[in-house]
Design a protein around this nucleic acid. Structure first.
Ligand SMILES: [Mn+2]
Ligand SMILES: [Mn+2]
Ligand SMILES: [Zn+2]
Ligand SMILES: [Zn+2]
Lengths: 143, 143
DNA sequence: ATACTATTGATATTCATTGACATCAGTCAG
DNA sequence: CTGACTGATGTCAATGAATATCAATAGTAT
């Protein structure tokens, strides 16, 4: 991702946009809130206004560069679009996120939309649970 | 649903709680925001504070009497728990909500959680699209 | 009817997100 | 390369959903 990619989707290649793109592709946690992005940039010495972060992420979403998710509890989480579509498995306790793709589910969803005569535009599937390491911790603390 | 049902789940049978319960079981649109509930009660001459509506709906959720959903866009939508679990199909344009249950999907979800070693606690699946009547409208307006 | 305690309603407050607007920086024609 | 046009940025104010506060009130069991 670089200047050209931004221009291709009709966005000027500005410093804030490039920094945010770079952050999204290098950071270890693929799923970040706007606030997360903002703080991370500060840490790295790149000063970008919070409003700009929100604006840019929304523009990236419209341009198809990132996806926005609403994990339970409400606020928005973003991830760079790379690789194929996938759904998410979220730990209620530590917030860890796993990605998965289940063709059977994807297929069934289309069939449901079809059955009701809807022209499907999107879908969101989140599975919530307790991850293995949190389960272990819980057992130890129980005693 | 009545006084006894509330007491069973450890909640005093107060006027506001009874009114909200009654509204939820009689209203035509099964899926309502807290604000919706608040306004509807005002219309009916039942004055209940907005804070109370939020509190009561949250208590009902904890008690298992209602479910909370986060349709895209963010804010919470509630529905009375009656009948079996189901997922939702939402029209992007008019907001209409259809309910469906697809055993294949439910089953696959459990298998995914299992595969990752998660103890599944919950899941949410929303399919978004354009409903048949909105599709028709769009075609007419196009011309 | 009384007394105890949970609940309510009005209000203030928080928090994520967006709006307004003057300044600034990318872009591109010359 | 430069200037000028226009979109983008940062600051700060504003919104809107949801929660916290707290004195007054209403359920409840005796
Ligand atoms: Mn992902
Ligand atoms: Mn429903
Ligand atoms: Zn965990
Ligand atoms: Zn529709």
């Amino acid at each position: 991702m670089n200047n050209q990619d931004l221009k291709k989707v009709g966005l000027k290649a500005t410093l804030p946009r490039l920094k945010i793109l770079e952050l999204l592709e290098t950071v270890e946690s693929r799923h970040m809130s706007a606030e997360d992005v903002y703080k991370k940039l500060l840490e790295m010495g790149d000063d970008v206004g919070l409003a700009t972060v929100y604006r840019v992420l929304t523009q990236f979403e419209s341009a198809g560069l990132v996806s926005r998710h609403h994990f339970d509890g409400g606020h928005s989480v973003f991830e760079l679009n790379q690789g194929a579509h996938h759904d998410h498995l979220v730990c209620d306790q530590c917030g860890k996120v796993e990605e998965f793709l289940e063709e059977t589910i994807e297929h069934c969803q289309h069939k449901v939309a079809e059955k009701f005569g809807y022209k499907m535009t999107d879908h969101s599937l989140y599975i919530y649970g307790i991850c293995p390491s949190c389960q272990k911790e819980n057992k130890e603390t129980d005693s």
